[in-house]
Design a binder for these strands. Structure first.
Lengths: 72, 72
DNA sequence: TTCACCACGCAGCTAAACTACGGGCGCGAT
DNA sequence: ATCGCGCCCGTAGTTTAGCTGCGTGGTGAA
């Protein structure tokens, strides 16, 4: 399921930028709980939400869907 | 606005594959009207929807967000 | 002209996008 | 051991946009 992988990718990028979920939420003007839901793949953001996530994480939206294929 | 660019990208890919909106709708099990809305940037698909669009268009999801930067 | 394709306005439903709360757990520092 | 921080989770709720369907009209090709 894509939203799970997306969530993992977002969490990974967030940590790489040394941000807490709270800081993310603040930057995105959304709730901490939602960040958690997204990262766990419970919910997915809207496309407009994706754009905001990408901006805060300083990547292009397509990077959010660029997953590492370690072991195929 | 992202969903507008996304819509244009989707339309472009669809035409490249010689599909009508109706055929897309059929393949996606959704309404023709929704395809039109998406391509015009009026609506954006959900993330789950993105996955389906990508599959029918035979691209990865990230390709839906890969836009040609002609003139910067 | 007809026909195929598509845009658009209008109206509507409902699921999910998003919020908030309380509580619990893991981890690291002290 | 405690404490603070970060995060997960269950529960409950609101709002909105994702998606549907209809009718109508425009455009381009044959």
């Amino acid at each position: 399921m894509l939203q799970k992988k997306l969530g993992q990718r977002i969490a990974s990028l967030r940590k790489a930028r040394k941000l807490t979920q709270e800081q993310m939420a603040e930057a995105l003007c959304c709730s901490v709980e939602f960040i958690s839901l997204v990262e766990r793949g419970v919910n997915a953001p809207s496309v407009a939400g994706l754009e905001k996530f990408a901006k805060v994480l300083k990547v292009e939206v397509k990077e959010l869907f660029t997953f590492e294929e370690k072991k195929r």
